[in-house]
């Protein structure tokens, strides 16, 4: 199972009640091709910040926020795991696709391929609900986390590799504005 198949296994869980921050180009293109929504913020640059954007959003809304992140990206912004722990947002899920590689740059191995455990780091940072699962079990775990108070960190172990995709045919401002409107509509409901 690669990231594409993993994302395919979790997209049936998504409704327009959740808000998703998605990390970088390849994962965002894969998610876009599987399921697009105004509730998806495709973060196409700023590697490492999907988790922090998700945290800032989850502080402000009641809906479930899922930040889809990568192992290489989380390794670049480990400090935010401690902030996620301190903030203790019940509606926040950090879903880390851990394929042990820098997928966008030619699948060079990350340190998780050589023994670093992001789930153990997250737990030590103070996020009690931090777990590593096989990619095949990740959808069940995510479904469970969506029903229980977080914050949750799910580290889904998969094989390296990306699905060939076209760029997302949306401008950055279109991604931004439709997402912001969707958040506003969700806030108006509560």
């Amino acid at each position: 199972m690669r990231r594409y198949e993993l994302l395919k296994s979790i997209t049936p869980l998504l409704t327009d009640e959740e808000f998703v921050i998605c990390n970088l180009g390849f994962p965002s293109q894969e998610l876009y091709s599987l399921r697009d929504s105004d509730n998806h913020f495709y973060m196409l640059g700023s590697m490492g910040l999907s988790s922090s954007i998700g945290l800032g959003l989850s502080m402000e809304i009641d809906n479930t926020v899922i930040a889809i992140d990568g192992d290489g990206s989380v390794l670049m912004n480990l400090g935010t795991l401690s902030t996620i722990a301190l903030e203790d947002c019940k509606n926040f899920i950090l879903f880390i696709v851990d394929n042990g590689s820098y997928g966008s740059t030619g699948d060079q191995p990350t340190h998780t391929a050589k023994g670093t455990s992001l789930a153990a780091i997250a737990k030590a940072a103070g996020i009690d609900s931090s777990v590593e699962v096989a990619g095949a079990d990740a959808a069940d775990k995510l479904a469970q986390c969506m029903k229980t108070p977080g914050p949750h960190v799910i580290v889904a172990k998969v094989e390296p590799g990306s699905q060939a995709m076209n760029p997302i045919p949306l401008t950055s401002l279109a991604i931004r504005d439709r997402f912001r409107e969707a958040v506003k509509a969700a806030q108006a409901k509560t």
Partner: peptide, 11 residues
């Protein structure tokens, strides 16, 4: 910056 982005997206 990431946290502020999330907060701005929420108004």
């Amino acid at each position: 910056l990431g946290i502020c982005t999330g907060a701005w997206l929420a108004g």
